[in-house]
């Protein structure tokens, strides 16, 4: 029915389980073996008619829905990374060839595929810094590669005095690494499967990314295309949420209604900043506009933080 693990001596931890009416018992299994000690029986009765009705669809139905959500999300990740591979090849070719205008045009749109599945892409500890490290995150002496190293070269206007454009060999090296590391990422995501908690925490994590890096303008300090990333993070979170929404409606309809409303409100607000296929540059946003976006991110992220607990019991 449920368990709480890794409880050290003297610690307490709450275990929340969703149970149908019936007789149960609790027990502690030190070392996770044996029949357990300190068995304590208890009885569950329906807390209300409404709760009984809500739980009516039954475990089997929920398990099937969760299975479907897992499968669908794995497909989504593979699709996005596949598009990232294609887009990165075109971007790298333009950059290496010195076609800066084309490279700049492809930059934000290609990165959107990364940002949509950022929590998955980041889960490979060695690849994330190679592909997505910002200059401010560098350690002393660390080789700076990936999207943002190239971003600075393409948008040098805000660079420090004395910044020199990368020579052709450096461009070729960075572009080659970008393509190779993205190919490695593509291999790594192929066998992935996702638990329900990984999906819900992924959605929460994507909104955290928006709140900590995108709405502050810290992600794209040279290109100022933060709103592209913002939109992509929200896209990814919404896909994850949509995958589990049916289950959530059964478990916590009020939370589902709130999340529906807040996702829609955030998208409406983001849409006001669209220009053509893209968005207003971050540096052109007024303080008031940024605060409005930040408020709406908080409005969504706060209830979204409860998604895992509401679903994973």
């Amino acid at each position: 029915m449920g368990e709480a693990e890794n409880i050290g001596p003297g610690l307490s931890r709450t275990l929340v389980v969703d149970l149908s009416a019936g007789s149960y018992f609790t027990a502690c299994k030190p070392g996770m073996t044996g029949t357990g000690i300190g068995q304590a029986p208890f009885t569950v009765t329906p807390s209300s008619a409404a709760d009984a009705a809500t739980n009516a669809p039954g475990e089997a139905d929920l398990v099937a829905r969760i299975d479907t959500a897992n499968t669908n999300y794995a497909s989504y990740v593979k699709d996005q990374i596949g598009q990232l591979v294609t887009g990165t090849a075109a971007f790298a070719a333009a950059y290496t060839a010195g076609d800066d205008n084309t490279a700049r045009g492809l930059y934000a749109a290609t990165r959107a595929h990364w940002e949509r599945v950022e929590t998955v892409a980041e889960s490979f500890g060695d690849l994330d810094p190679k592909l997505d490290l910002r200059e401010a995150d560098l350690e002393e002496g660390q080789d700076w590669t990936g999207w943002h190293a190239i971003e600075k070269d393409l948008w040098p206007a805000d660079a420090e005095a004395g910044f020199a454009a990368y020579p052709a060999a450096e461009r070729a090296r960075l572009a080659g690494l970008l393509v190779a590391d993205t190919a490695t990422l593509n291999e790594k995501v192929q066998p992935l499967t996702f638990t329900l908690a990984q999906q819900t925490n992924g959605a929460i994590g994507l909104l955290d990314e928006v709140a900590s890096g995108k709405v502050t303008g810290e992600e794209e300090v040279w290109s100022h295309t933060d709103l592209w990333d913002f939109q992509a993070n929200v896209d990814g979170a919404r896909v994850l949420y949509a995958g589990v929404r049916d289950v959530l409606v059964q478990k916590d309809a009020a939370l589902a209604a709130t999340l529906d409303t807040r996702f829609a409100a955030l998208q409406t607000l983001l849409d006001t900043q669209r220009v053509g296929d893209g968005f207003v540059l971050y540096t052109d946003l007024s303080t008031g506009t940024v605060k409005g976006l930040a408020d709406q991110v908080n409005a969504l992220a706060e209830p979204l933080g409860r998604l895992t607990a509401a679903l994973v019991l």
């Binding site: 029915m1 449920g2 368990e3 709480a4 409880i7 610690l11 307490s12 931890r13 709450t14 275990l15 929340v16 389980v17 149970l19 149960y24 609790t26 027990a27 502690c28 000690i37 300190g38 304590a40 208890f42 009885t43 569950v44």
Partner: peptide
């Protein structure tokens, strides 16, 4: 409160 919580195992009370 929390004492009536049925799902509490021998892991302390909520």
């Amino acid at each position: 409160f929390g004492l009536a919580g049925a799902g509490v195992a021998g892991v302390g009370l909520g």
